[in-house]
Design a protein around this nucleic acid. Structure first.
Lengths: 251, 251
DNA sequence: GTCTGTGAATCCTTTCACAGCT
DNA sequence: AGCTGTGAAAGGATTCACAGAC
């Protein structure tokens, strides 16, 4: 995953592992659901189940944030919601812009999960002049000529790129030049950014491909159970894709 | 080795680490781009740069697939495209169904990255009778009553869920009952599935939250660099002028 | 007795660095 | 020379298991 440099080697105060950070939103969602049902406290076991992880991991994760639980009782739901929100920076308002209002951009603009978590769609931007002024999710689309102005006037530091692949890097460059320091990229391209800028990538087809890999292996196991299946082994001799045999290396 | 601590018994890999599998689609995309430019061979250094990883990692990843490179030369682009495609299972045709044809479902239906990688949208399914028959991305939407029939007739084993959160689990259950064994879930819910079924989750707001975390930290570092270090631990107070404040009630 | 918080052990991933092939 | 393939080392993440608070 493309992550900018988190320079500052001596993180004496709070070094929350990336893996933990990535799970905090999961916990937060589960906690929010409990909160809406007015559940006062929850055990690590229950919360872990609701978030889809195991309890040891959850407790370890929370231990990086501090000691917010009560032994013999569990965690106070409201208090934890607040602590995690604060840790994630969601107690403040994050204006974001979405660039590229095609199908995906429109879906993102309409996505309720943003507004409910401290994110505010400050502007929708598209390169197509015909889109300008047209409202999407109640927000008028603006032409990309305005990009820099919009970023500066709204103090936007997070940009979402939902353009076609070819437009992504130029858009990215302009966003960064205008002051954006975090980018969520939906375009199927590797973005190049300067140090200090974070990029996260969501690629719809990559996830499907990973599923296909496992799916294929399931089918292969079934077949292999009946006969010894050996796929084609082109030129190269030696290892190749065979059964469980790892790479060989005689001494 | 092969210790008896199989967290996922049904998903025993052929020796290719998950982390590597997750990167194969990246390599494949970079290679496809090279292939289209008729580049015959590529070094690990070049390919790694194009895929956004470092070369040692790439070579290690490829070593799990077999010895497909030539020392002193690099990798044959076409050959590697074929090998990775085969490894990912993309040399076969994967019919998929998309359930929930809202903004996101429509975006997915229109997404070109599927068709070009062995995935074929076999059907679009929505619970709204008003959608039935309406074409999206050239494919007529079918009502969810037809779900089981569609799955079976098309031999679908991969399902994409793009419904609202509340509908996701019931839809998932029906998909699984009908024979689907891999699910890509865009709904913000933790899905419960029987053993042997793979679920991958894509959550748009989670990615943004992770960005917000890092963004917040950057802001804190800047402030700390300019003035004396002041840890950002504010009490619940007035947010922004137009803040839409998440429900937090600190004890 | 219940449940959290956490060192220690285990497992997985990345990086290093160089042997060995072309 | 140039570049891959891979053991070995280093670094993270996960799980274990239990001390200690309630």
């Amino acid at each position: 995953m493309a992550t900018g440099r988190t320079h500052r080697p001596a993180t004496r105060s709070r070094g929350i592992p990336e893996a933990t950070v990535a799970r905090l939103p999961l916990y937060l969602r589960a906690l929010t659901a409990l909160s809406e049902r007015s559940v006062p406290t929850v055990s690590s076991e229950e919360l872990a189940a609701a978030a889809g992880v195991n309890s040891a991991k959850l407790r370890k994760d929370f231990s990086y944030l501090g000691s917010y639980g009560t032994r013999g009782v569990g965690y106070d739901v409201e208090y934890l919601v607040y602590q995690i929100s604060r840790e994630l920076g969601l107690t403040q308002d994050w204006p974001v812009v979405i660039v590229g209002i095609g199908n995906l951009g429109a879906a993102l603009a309409n996505y309720g999960g943003f507004a409910s978590r401290g994110f505010r769609v400050a502007a929708l931007i598209d390169a197509d002049p015909a889109m300008a002024g047209k409202p999407v999710a109640g927000i008028p689309v603006q032409h990309s000529d305005e990009l820099e102005k919009i970023i500066e006037e709204n103090g936007v530091s997070i940009g979402v790129i939902a353009t076609p692949a070819g437009a992504a890097q130029p858009v990215c460059d302009r966003l960064v030049a205008a002051g954006v320091t975090s980018i969520l990229n939906f375009a199927p391209t590797v973005l190049t950014v300067p140090d200090g800028v974070d990029v996260r990538k969501v690629d719809l087809s990559i996830e499907l491909q990973i599923l296909a890999f496992h799916e294929q292996r399931k089918a292969g196991e079934e077949a292999a159970a009946e006969a010894g299946a050996v796929p084609p082994a082109p030129e190269e001799s030696g290892k190749g894709p065979d059964g469980d045999v790892p790479a060989v290396m005689p001494a």
